[in-house]
Simulated assay, not measured.
Amino acid sequence: MKSDQAAVLSELHTLRDFIRWTLSEFNRHQVFFGHGHSEAWDEASQLVLNAVDLPWDTNPAVLDARLTQSEKERVLSFVSQRVHARKPLPYITGEAWFMGLPFTVDERVLIPRSPIAQLIDTAFEPWLRPGPVGRILDLCTGSGCIGIACAYAFEEAEVDLADISADALEVARQNIDRHMLADRVRACQGDLFDAVQGTTYDLIVSNPPYVDADDLAQMPAEYHHEPSLALGSGPDGLDITRRILRQAADHLNPEGLLVVEVGNSEVHLMQSMPELPLIWVELEQGGNGVFVITAEELRAHADLL
């Protein structure tokens, strides 16, 4: 291994050289891409550029620039973490992007990738009632990316980021400060709605743990770096989602809306609650398992929950 590293350090010189070599290492070790990039070339480029403190949109003319010895060694360190430890790139760099916004991440939180971004981009139309939005809850917030993105989309709203994990909320607070939103966004610790007792919302958005036991056992190694608390939720992946459905109406204003992502566990939810009038959102940019339901419908069908 040391001889291979020595050859790389002595024979490769430019950013382009190292991006190509990184791409080969990805292919050689069959790494899995599921945390921000679907293309090996894109991730190889970002890894190398980040290792030498260059932004992802660096002018391509720079790719023929030569690296210093310390920069080469840093690239090798990043690649080793990615291909041997199977660590997702955002955990190596400490940063992930969601809806064009940068977020601080580490292994205390999931890496942002929710298709709920597509709904935020359209301000949850046509499901959210017209008019001003006063208060939003991001339940099971993790890094805070969904709630913070909502704060950008609804500039008049106050946003609560709730999570049971104190470690996750430390990261969320870093992101609140990073985006300078402390005047409108707060972090609240507790088990689901225990974190926000006595508060009601126009909009509740949640990307809770929803991976069922079978899927959890078969996930690629990269996912095992993410907190297990934020992934699994019982045999069918719906333990937490059922609790959210039972309790959400008490925390929604009369015309409020609940939005939840359950991923592949949507099949289990459809089978277990076929009469509940969930609206499954068609996601034009890909993804699945996001439903919406109004406060009115939740109250009308409380007997099903």
Rank of each mutant, 00 (worst) to 15 (best):
D194W: 06
A149E: 00
L89A: 03
G142Q: 09
D183R: 15
D177T: 15
P88K: 03
I244E: 00
G287N: 07
H224P: 02
N264C: 02
S77Q: 14
A168F: 09
D167Q: 15
S272L: 09
Q46H: 15
V159L: 02
W97I: 07
H224E: 06
T14E: 03
A65D: 15
P115Q: 03
W56E: 12
I293C: 07
E170Q: 14
A166V: 13
E107H: 14
G198M: 09
V262F: 10
S70K: 13
F32Q: 08
H29R: 15
V52Y: 05
A230K: 08
A7W: 12
Q218N: 15
N253D: 12
A61S: 13
E261W: 12
P277Q: 05
W41P: 00
N207F: 02
S10H: 10
P102C: 10
G237M: 09
A153D: 04
E11F: 13
T122G: 01
A300E: 13
T122E: 15
H251W: 04
T199V: 07
V171L: 08
L161I: 06
L298Q: 02
R135G: 08
I116Y: 07
P55Y: 12
S10Y: 04
D215L: 11
I19C: 03
T68Y: 11
Q285D: 12
E170N: 08
R113V: 01
K2N: 12
I116F: 07
L15V: 13
A96I: 01
R86G: 06
D42P: 09
E125D: 14
P102H: 14
R108E: 05
G36M: 05
E156C: 01
A6I: 03
R16N: 12
T294E: 05
D303Q: 13
T68Q: 09
A85M: 06
L15C: 05
D106R: 12
G34C: 07
E284V: 10
L63P: 04
D42K: 14
I164W: 13
D236T: 10
K72A: 01
H251S: 00
W41N: 04
R178A: 10
K2E: 13
E296W: 11
R129L: 04
D177L: 15
F193N: 06
R299E: 06
L245C: 04
R28E: 07
I92S: 05
V185M: 04
E297N: 10
D42H: 15
F98H: 05
P88V: 02
E297Y: 00
E255K: 14
S80Q: 15
A96D: 01
G287S: 06
V262Q: 08
R16Y: 13
I244P: 08
S233D: 08
V260G: 08
A40R: 11
I244F: 07
G142F: 07
